[in-house]
Design a protein around this nucleic acid. Structure first.
Lengths: 232, 232
DNA sequence: GTCTATAAGATGATAGAC
DNA sequence: GTCTATCATCTTATAGAC
């Protein structure tokens, strides 16, 4: 099973006064991504971002003008990659599977990029996944970006589901997706609540397992919800 | 189908300098509940809470000492009612259904209290539902309260599921619940994202519909995930 | 591009009068 | 219980030297 390339695993140690190129703004984005994903927009100060990035406060304003601009930049940086890869993954699967497509296969393809990156793409991708989850659950910030970048990938997913279940109604599909979306959101947040609830039986950081369950759970859910009505 | 009593629909117009009893602290809680549910802990200032409640800033400190204390009080106020009612609802259902229990019936009972209150319990309960959703997705605040009050109800739910599916393994049940929990969380947030994604075909405020889909989706998901393994 | 210095205002919290 | 007044701190943001 081909895994998506882990794109540019984020740098760990950050050089103060980095000698080389102009990657200062990247350091700032990395730090902001980390902090925003953990504490939300209001829970983070520009000073904290600057300190974490090892740069001066004024530089944050120099590159991103305002705090809101910084947040938008963080959210935008990986949005296209994230969603293009999801679209490519399900398209590749559709092409390869032909009329043997299954919901399970489709969902696996759809979920693999975020899960694999969150696992192996470096800390940046993990933080970004948590940020996406948070933004999906409360689109106060990033609502516009969310719609522009994320919706098309979801619509393409629904198109392909319709090839598998031609009888399914759009309403049913959207409500079904809503259930999947919630599960995905909660999972990418990796809150640790499941660990405690299950007395350590499940670990919310175990994304491989989480993904496998989610695929089976959602596939069955979609089938139940989109089933042909009793009579006709 | 008996609906849970909508307990104390929160007062709408708030009397400045309320003549009567000492319900100042309730006004403060109502205002804080509203604001915290929309903007999170850091996104709300004590001044905003005081203004919304029509009281002085100092009174917030008088009653709740600190901002964190205010948040905890908000989260605690309805936690016991919320969860006791969920436990009662599924116990009543189990009693009534006997060995005719179904996953669908059980989930419907489990979901009804929050959904009905969010719909008909007054604005306070709707705000509280959104706050619970937010806290479940990011337990930075309320993690302890979450565990103490919410976990027992979930454990009871899982016990009853085991009566329906005696073969099911605990790991499978917890991971399955995690999927349901995510869907529930996203739904109670009523973010409006589904409205836009579906071009208005679905409204995230339509909790009746959301609940009906969730029951069918989750029941099928649990069955798929907890199915007896192929061989043995 | 990067830093120092600082403006201009908001924030959580408290002391004390009534 | 409620309000006025205020503190000490932290906030975003900018102007300007290097």
């Amino acid at each position: 099973m081909s895994q998506p390339d882990p794109p540019t695993p984020a740098r760990r140690g950050r050089p103060r006064k980095a000698g080389g190129g102009g990657d200062t703004s990247e350091s700032i984005l990395d730090a902001a991504e980390d902090l925003f994903s953990k504490h939300g927009f209001y829970g983070v100060t520009i000073r904290e971002v600057a300190r974490e990035a090892g740069v001066d406060t004024a530089l944050v304003h120099y590159y991103f003008t305002a705090k809101k601009g910084l947040f938008d930049a963080v959210f935008l940086r990986r949005a296209a990659i994230w969603n293009n890869e999801r679209v490519d993954a399900i398209n590749r699967y559709a092409q390869a599977a032909g009329d043997q497509m299954t919901l399970e296969g489709l969902f696996e393809a759809f979920l693999q990029p975020p899960f694999q990156w969150s696992l192996k793409g470096g800390p940046g991708w993990k933080h970004y996944a948590a940020l996406v989850a948070q933004t999906n659950a409360n689109p106060a910030f990033g609502g516009e970006t969310m719609a522009r970048y994320f919706d098309p990938a979801i619509r393409r997913l629904i198109e392909l589901i319709k090839q598998i279940m031609p009888h399914a109604r759009d309403v049913d599909l959207y409500w079904a997706y809503h259930n999947l979306s919630g599960a995905l959101t909660l999972t990418l947040g990796e809150t640790g609540r499941l660990d405690r609830l299950s007395n350590g039986l499940c670990r919310s950081g175990d994304l491989e397992t989480a993904g496998a369950y989610m695929v089976r759970f959602a596939a069955a859910g979609f089938r139940a919800v989109c089933a042909e009505p009793d009579a006709g």
